[in-house]
Computed example of a mutant assay.
Amino acid sequence: MNLNPKFPLYLPGVQNGNNDNVSIVGANLREDITTLGYFFSTNGGIEVKIQNTYPTKEFSSFSDILRKFIQENNLENVQRLGVAVPGPVLDGRSAPARLGWNLDVEEIKKDFGFERVEMLNDLEASAYGMGLIEDSDLEPVYTSGHLEKGNVAILAPGNGLGEAGYFFDGKYLRPFATEGGHSEFSPRTNVEVEFYQFLNNIYGIVSWENVLSKTGLFNIYRFLRDVKRHPEPEWLAERFSNGNFAQELYKAAVEDDILICKIAIDTFLEFLAREANNLTLKLKATGGLLIAGDIPQLIRDYINKDKFYEKFKISDKMEDMLRNIPIYLIKTDHTGLNGIALYTAYYQE
């Protein structure tokens, strides 16, 4: 995998020959599935040799997963480790709430004998991984044909709500993490005030993650069902109890034409457009908006791009800036895994 020139990442180590042909284990930790890969750095890019997934909740620690991956694949003398985690990383440590694990790069380095261990927030890692995707993996929602110069925003609803960005320094894009998904949600209409009150009774503080995530999609659905009294077919309730909620909801909306499911997805997309607007304005992301994550990938064919764009550019005073910002859907998985491997290979000189 080689770097895409549309994403001129700041990777000073690319010019250092000592970073060529380095062996790396990359890990992307998620609440449900943890993915590990065995990589080699090559010619300013990376090459994956092995990739395995593990059910996260079946392990008591990340070290247990890492040890299993190394043993199963008979890996010896791996030089570096990169870890992407669903939470903030502070001074080489992270305690992601959805995992219940405490991670410390110095402890992992000592226990396994790596020469270097890096750890990033998972969406910051994905921002590096975007630098490796093909043009065909960028699906335009609205664009003039290319990414303009400037900061770039990334929004990724999945198990949680990831928000990150790139700072454009005039030559390079420099990824950075945020915890913007935990900022407070604000309603706009009377129905949304009802929705806010519904969530307030459950959570107290209502964050955007309570609205734009897999749990958020369920929150929208149950508000429509329990408060607004939209009917739910009995067979659908049984499907939900036996399957993946988001997938079953989407299937019921598209294949079975169930009104409550269609309204739930439409509402989710309206909130997605609004929070995309918020993030873009806060980062002054004139270089573009990237929408990633499990849910947008799942419902990609359902999205009315013109309608999304019209909702996105609504603003009190900034509509002129917003209407010129290109928007892309990301169609590929594993940007987090590839990104942490790329960062671990080349960020340091």
Rank of each mutant, 00 (worst) to 15 (best):
I50P: 10
A97N: 12
L75D: 05
K171E: 14
V152N: 01
D122H: 03
L66I: 09
D32Y: 13
G100T: 07
G44M: 06
F69K: 01
S94C: 13
R67P: 01
T280H: 10
K214P: 01
L224Y: 13
I299L: 06
R80V: 05
M119H: 04
L120T: 01
F40I: 11
E115S: 14
T42Y: 12
L66C: 08
F112A: 07
V14L: 15
V105D: 01
D257C: 03
L11T: 03
T35E: 12
K317Y: 14
S23M: 04
Y54N: 02
T143E: 02
I303S: 06
G339S: 10
L36F: 11
T286I: 14
S61Q: 09
S186A: 13
R225P: 00
G170I: 07
F39C: 09
V227Q: 12
D20R: 10
L298G: 05
A156C: 13
S136C: 02
G131W: 04
N242C: 07
Y347R: 13
G100S: 07
V25S: 01
G82F: 03
Y196G: 03
I65G: 05
G339Q: 04
I303D: 05
H182D: 11
V141C: 06
E192H: 11
F59A: 08
G288Q: 03
K251P: 00
R174E: 04
E76S: 14
V191A: 13
E270W: 04
F168Q: 06
E194R: 14
L120R: 08
L103N: 03
V152Q: 00
G165W: 01
A292Y: 04
F167A: 08
D122M: 05
N200M: 09
N21R: 11
A125T: 06
Q71K: 13
L132G: 05
L281H: 03
A177R: 05
P140F: 08
N338Q: 06
E234C: 00
E319T: 14
L173A: 03
N201T: 05
R274Q: 11
L290V: 10
W235E: 13
N242P: 00
V83D: 00
N210K: 08
T178C: 09
P296V: 09
W101G: 00
E115V: 10
N43L: 12
